[in-house]
Computed example of a mutant assay.
Amino acid sequence: MTNPTKIKVLFRLRSLEMGGVPRVVLDLLNNLPKEKFDITLMLNLYQGELRTEIPKHIHLVRIAKGREDFSVNPILHKVQLVLRKLKLKFYEVFPSFLYNQILKEDYDIEVAPGYAEFEWILNSPNKKSRKIGWFHTDVSYDKDQNRVMKRINLMKKFDWMIFGSAQTRQVITDLYGVTYPNSSVIYNVINFQEAMEKSKLMEVNYPIRPVFSTIGRLHFRKGYDALIRVHKRLLDEGFKHSIAVIGGGNEMENLKNQAIETGVEETFNLLDTQKNPYPYVAQSDFFVLPSRSESYPLTVGEVMGLGIPILSTNVGGIPEMIDHEVDGYLVNFDEEEIYEGMKRFMTDQELIENLKKGMKSVPEKFDNSKIYHQISQVFENQYLQK
Results as ranks from 00 to 15, higher is better:
E251K: 07
M304H: 03
F268S: 02
P279Y: 08
R292K: 14
A244P: 00
S293K: 03
L306D: 06
T273F: 07
Y278V: 03
P279N: 03
I260Q: 14
D272Q: 11
G263R: 09
F286D: 03
I308D: 00
Y296M: 14
Y278S: 01
P309V: 07
E302V: 04
P290D: 01
G263Q: 13
T299E: 10
P277A: 00
L289V: 10
Q283S: 11
F239L: 15
S284K: 01
E253H: 08
D272F: 14
E294W: 01
V281N: 07
L298H: 04
N250K: 15
V303D: 02
E302H: 00
D272W: 06
G307E: 05
D285V: 02
N269C: 11
L289Y: 09
T267R: 08
P277D: 06
V264Y: 02
K275G: 09
S291H: 07
E294I: 01
G307I: 10
R292F: 10
Q258V: 02
N250Y: 14
F239R: 03
G247K: 00
D272R: 10
F286H: 00
T299Q: 13
F268N: 01
N269A: 07
Y296N: 12
N254V: 05
G248Q: 10
T273N: 15
Q258P: 02
S242F: 01
I246D: 05
N250D: 14
E266P: 07
I246R: 05
A282Y: 10
P297T: 12
L270A: 08
A259H: 08
F287T: 00
Q283C: 08
P277V: 08
V264K: 05
E261S: 15
E237D: 15
Q274F: 06
I243Q: 04
S242Q: 15
G248C: 09
V245D: 03
P279K: 05
L289D: 06
P309H: 07
F239A: 01
E266M: 13
E265M: 12
E251I: 04
E253G: 01
Y280Q: 07
L289T: 00
P290K: 04
T273E: 13
G263H: 08
T273S: 14
K256A: 02
G301S: 11
A259S: 15
S242H: 02
R292H: 15
S293W: 05
P277W: 05
G301H: 05
E253N: 10
E265V: 09
G238H: 09
F286I: 12
I308N: 03
F268E: 05
G305A: 04
S291R: 02
L255M: 12
K240D: 08
N276Y: 02
Y296K: 13
Y296A: 12
F239K: 12
E253L: 05
G301V: 11
V303I: 12
Q283A: 06
T267S: 14
F239S: 04
G249C: 11
P279M: 08
L289W: 11
L306Y: 03
V303C: 03
N269V: 14
E265L: 12
G301W: 08
M252Y: 15
K275A: 15
Q274M: 10
F287E: 13
N269M: 11
E265K: 14
L271G: 04
S242P: 14
V264G: 12
E237T: 14
G248V: 13
D285F: 02
K240W: 07
